[in-house]
Design a protein around this nucleic acid. Structure first.
Lengths: 196, 196
DNA sequence: GAGCAAACGGAACGTTGCTCCGTTAACGAT
DNA sequence: ATCGTTAACGGAGCAACGTTCCGTTTGCTC
């Protein structure tokens, strides 16, 4: 990451003022539209909300995945950073794991359609997929290893499949009041516990 | 339950020969296209495969859900009927439940994209949703009740949420060799076991 | 065979994702 | 302050798809 200075290199020419302004405007507009219409809202709707042309969206965020990542980056980072913190402050590693998974679930279920798009095999979304995996799987691995090391859970479950499973369970949580993913995730985590 | 007769009146005139022929042709074509391109394949592709116009598809199957139901009805019925049979022949109700869930998972993962569409909140798919629920939830309830009655599992889990959870876990199973829904479903079922 | 309703086919329309290019205006140089 | 460069903009245009609509064909009955 050297092409555009973000803080470190000082005097390098920054982007034009209107470009920087539009990027912020777009992020705000996208966040708002995502809340009301979900993360698969039409590009035109986001452009209209921001008061810019569609070319501007695609210039700043070439794929929808880039836009989604930009909108939720802060929250994903926060979730990732909460992992080690929980491990340090919780009574047992298994408790930390449970709480961390809850954070993740809370994040997903409050983002209309994000869970669904997260597992989409659509090629346009693989950078989104990759971002979530890169950022969260290591954290989950750490928690899982700690819990396995303390003998609380079986050790034959990988972080990747657990995360995918949890993500999948969160799909469609909105739009169906009869379905509460939290209960099922809880069941899944309970199933992790070592028999005996 | 053969074809739809108008009930009260005298024997309803059966459909025209070409209509009946086209319906069969369409079912075969749809089944073939579903295998290669998934259940969300373009309508035009199915029409082309069948050698008919698009109007013919929509006349026979007004929504995509109707077509999907028609294609998979036999297998869904077989799965539903396997429930009581398993309960009768298995060692324990919990074993029967596990085997039945396995049947369901096998069915779902072999149908490209069916699991994804099953939970879609898209209004066009709610009859599909309803069909699966009407047909399978009672069976699952029976198995669940039996296992709960024998004290093997906790009794605070409803068939509906379990089925939705299992269905969700099956989403995206194809197109990702690293993800094996069977393992996670197994974990979920394990989590059902009563803590003792 | 004639008449008619059922069934057909595909053109046409609306919605979306994405690209492409003529136009605008920001910014450093003068 | 003005000027020229070019980054950045906007939206028309195209392709793919779902869905409808209606003129045409065809099976069935008499």
């Amino acid at each position: 990451m050297n092409e555009s200075d973000e803080g470190a290199g000082h005097a390098a020419r920054s982007k034009r003022a209107d470009a920087r302004r539009n990027e912020k405007t777009l992020l705000d507009a996208a966040a708002a539209v995502f809340v009301t219409s979900g993360v698969e809202a039409p590009v035109r709707a986001i452009a209209a909300k921001a008061g810019v042309g569609m070319g501007t969206i695609y210039r700043h965020f070439p794929t929808r995945a880039d836009l989604i990542i930009a909108v939720y980056r802060h929250q994903v980072e926060a979730c990732a950073e909460a992992g080690p913190a929980l491990l340090a402050t919780s009574a047992t590693p298994h408790a930390a794991l449970g709480q961390w998974i809850n954070l993740f679930v809370d994040f997903l279920v409050t983002k209309h359609g994000l869970a669904a798009v997260l597992q989409s095999d659509n090629a346009g979304f693989d950078t989104l997929h990759a971002y979530f995996l890169d950022r969260l799987v290591p954290v989950c691995t750490q928690l899982l290893d700690a819990a396995a090391g303390s003998g609380e859970i079986r050790s034959d479950v990988e972080a990747y499949e657990l995360m995918r499973g949890v993500g999948n369970l969160c799909i469609g949580a909105d739009s169906d009041p009869r379905y509460d993913p939290r209960r099922l995730v809880e069941l899944l985590i309970a199933g992790l516990r070592r028999p005996h």
